[in-house]
Structures are given as C-alpha cells and as structure tokens.
Design a protein around this nucleic acid. Structure first.
Ligand code: FES
Ligand code: FES
Lengths: 143, 143
DNA sequence: TCCTAAATATGATTTTTATCATATTATATT
DNA sequence: AATATAATATGATAAAAATCATATTTAGGA
C-alpha cells in the first residue's frame, strides 16, 4: 500500500505537528526514538519534505525541524507523493499499461471504488486534521 | 498495493481460466506473450501456485498449465497470499507494530473501512467470478 | 527403450528500496 | 571571529523484489 518510507514520513510529520513549533524545533535525533525509526533514515526523509516545503527547518545551533501553520495544512497525500511518487497508488491493480475506466480490468470493477475512497481521504485529510483526531483521543501514536 | 508478482500471477491465472482446460494445456511460453510477462518469470510464479494447488500442471511432452474446476473456485486472495504472503495487505498503514482496532493510528480511522472492503472483495471473489465478468464483457484483459 | 518436450528446482543477476555514514554548510552563542 | 551545533548533500552498503538462466525430472511418442 504505502512504502515504509512514506509510513515513516507520516509518523515523523505527525510527531512534529504535535511536538514542535517555530520556537520549539526538534532535532532529527529526538524524533528518531519516539517514532522508532533510525535517525539517519528519518533525517533523510525529512530533508526531502523540507525541499517540498511540507516541513520547515533551520540548521545550525538551536536548529531543528518544525511545522508552521502553512505546513499543517498540507494533505497526507502530499507527503506520500513526495516520498513514493504519484503513481504508486493509482496504477492498474493487474498491471495493465494504465488503469483505464473505459476498458477496466476484472479487478478494477470490484476494487476501484474502495481505492478511490482511500485516495480521496488521503487527498482531503490534512496533517492538522489527523492531529485533531489524536488530540481528541480518537487516534493514537504509539511507536 | 499488490506486488508486481501478484499482479502477474493474477493475469496468468485469468488467462489460463479463459484459455485452458485439462485437455488443452498451455505452456509457459504461450502464456508469457499475451499477458506481457517474461517467460522465466511467469513460469516461476506459476510453479508456486501449482505447489499450492491453485493451478494444475503436467510436465513433459504435451504438458503445460491449466485450471480445473476446483482451481477455478479459489479466491483472488489465495493467489495474493501465495505470492505476497498474508501480511502485505493488513499491516498498519503507519507502520505501528500491528494494526490495532483498540488503539488505532490516525490513518486507521480514515482508511480502514475502505481497506476492509478491498480485502473482503479479494477474499470473496473467485477466479471463476472474474472470468464471468470478462465473458459478459464487463471487464477486459488487454496486455 | 530413446528421444523430445515441458515443468521443476535451484540459483545467479539486476534493480529497487531501505538503511547507514560522513563531509559540508549554515546558525547561534561566546 | 571562533566554536559548537544541527541540517544538508552526497554517496556507500544492505536487504528485498524483480528478472534471468540452466540443469534436472517427468511424460509422451517414435
Ligand atoms: S485497476 Fe486495472 S484497469 Fe483499473
Ligand atoms: S492502520 Fe494503523 S492501526 Fe490500523
């Protein structure tokens, strides 16, 4: 479904959303442990997100990663797109050249509605939305 | 979502369902081209399916692969399970240790219903079901 | 019984994904 | 300005997935 890297990235972003701010930056090494992803690995992923302006950062002493209000309004899909690329989730499930509505493969008929729901959720839900779920106690973030 | 291998395997099985029978076996090399998967690759995948009795085969002259009535009643999920293993589709989408209904991650809340629908379809739909869709002209099998 | 055809077992190679490591650059503090 | 700190750029290594290759086994036909 999602790559490991995307999953890690989402965890890290949510962690930042909950535990950082412009005046309270968090270093890679302090993200690594609570989300259970190796430091060098999460650092690299965060760098890609910074490049796409989904995460903010400043380097040097007192530096670190954080999310500002603009960052918080990005969709979950935008994270996945940066890390996994656009086509991972919408290619044909039977590996036809392309997923084709006019000439759907047999799996298309039975799976594409559910898949669209997933894609739509990922597109419409923002980081902020998920954070709210956690704050309301409807969702959890262990490891 | 599904691995390449699983997608290839499903294509091959559907091709066999439509073009083979006990008295009309099809060789790996004659499956390879129409489904657009390299011969050595599809042969290996089919061997795994034979081992799990999802596909039938006989070797030697006049041999080849085919599906019998029993084979046709296997679910699509059974193919995926043989090729990808059981946990590819139901692990936590944020890579928590396990997908946990009691302490769901933020993605769980928004995605798990759709994912369950996908899993249920894959479990309930048999090879025969999909073949019927193709025969009715509701689904297609190019490349 | 031989010969040929085809799957099977096995494993090698390539590509992609995941993971680790480090030298460089930018920032704050002294 | 000098130093320490932390991200960044870059690339190396490891593991997994995808792909390719081949010797062995089994079945049919001459
Ligand atoms: S998923 Fe195969 S055509 Fe859409
Ligand atoms: S998908 Fe994360 S807990 Fe179910």
């Amino acid at each position: 479904m999602l790559s490991n890297s995307s999953k890690y990235a989402i965890k890290a972003v949510l962690f930042l959303a909950l535990n950082s701010s412009e005046k309270n930056k968090v270093m890679a090494k302090d993200i690594s442990q609570p989300i259970n992803v190796p430091q060098a690995y999460i650092a690299k992923l965060l760098q890609e997100l910074v490049k796409e302006k989904i995460v903010s950062s400043v380097r040097g002493a007192k530096g670190g990663f954080y999310l500002d209000d603009k960052n918080l309004n990005h969709s979950i899909m935008s994270i996945v797109n940066v890390i996994d690329g656009e086509k991972r989730l919408n290619s044909c499930m039977m590996s036809l050249k392309k997923c084709n509505e006019e000439k759907p493969c047999p799996l298309h008929s039975i799976l594409s509605t559910s898949r669209s729901q997933i894609l739509n959720s990922l597109k419409s839900k923002t980081i902020k939305d998920l954070v709210e779920e956690v704050e309301l106690g409807n969702a959890f973030l262990p490891l």
